[in-house]
């Protein structure tokens, strides 16, 4: 039987992150857009076939491990939870890795928790090949995630304006 395609798209597919990255790498100038994630070696899709880890993004800096635990354990027992930290300040910087015991739990999490709210923010989940030491740190210039460097809209849950902009205009706290 040929591989069966579903009649509607699946929410538990890995994002285009791996594929797009591969293309970008081949295309010359290499620039990492996503944080806390390292380059992948061969065949990312194969690695994700048994993935039990999820990258979770768009968290508030104030969201705690306990809150994440409370929500994500609805999809299965959590084996490990690694908070994403600012490289310099070692404070949460808005992402984390959640590791389950089974691949099925990770897929279910993609389907049932990805795109819902935690701490009143819509969170993003993506299958991940697994946590490795070092990946818990943001890779933006100032220590957080790259996306928080140049963000022009004000996001109180993620440190106000982009860090690079804060430097120019002063820290967000003083303005508000």
């Amino acid at each position: 039987m040929p591989s069966v395609r579903s009649t509607v798209d699946r929410l538990d597919k890995p994002s285009s992150y791996a594929a797009s990255k591969k293309r970008r790498r081949g295309g010359g100038r290499e620039r990492d857009e996503d944080d806390g994630r390292q380059q992948r070696s061969i065949s990312p899709t194969d690695k994700l076939k048994e993935a039990t880890t999820l990258y979770v993004g768009n968290l508030s800096f104030y969201t705690t491990e306990e809150q994440i635990h409370e929500l994500f354990s609805k999809c299965g027992e959590i084996k490990r939870l690694v908070m994403g930290l600012d490289r310099f300040q070692k404070t949460p910087c808005g992402f984390c890795f959640v590791e389950y015991y089974t691949h099925q739990d990770a897929l279910d999490c993609m389907k049932y928790i990805g795109g819902t709210k935690l701490d009143e923010r819509v969170i993003r989940t993506d299958l991940d090949e697994g946590f490795a030491e070092g990946r818990q740190y943001g890779r933006g210039k100032s220590g957080g995630q790259v996306r928080d460097e140049y963000r022009t809209e004000y996001d109180p849950g993620r440190g106000g304006f982009g860090r690079a902009l804060n430097d120019d205009y002063g820290p967000a706290d003083e303005r508000y």
């Binding site: 798209d9 996503d34 768009n58 993003r124 790259v146």
Partner: peptide, 21 residues
């Protein structure tokens, strides 16, 4: 929420939901 992420994947999926074929 969706547009904020660096990857706007899910939004795209939603729009494509019934005609991705």
């Amino acid at each position: 929420g969706r547009n904020r992420g660096s990857n706007n994947n899910r939004k795209r999926r939603f729009e494509d939901a019934d005609n991705h074929y």
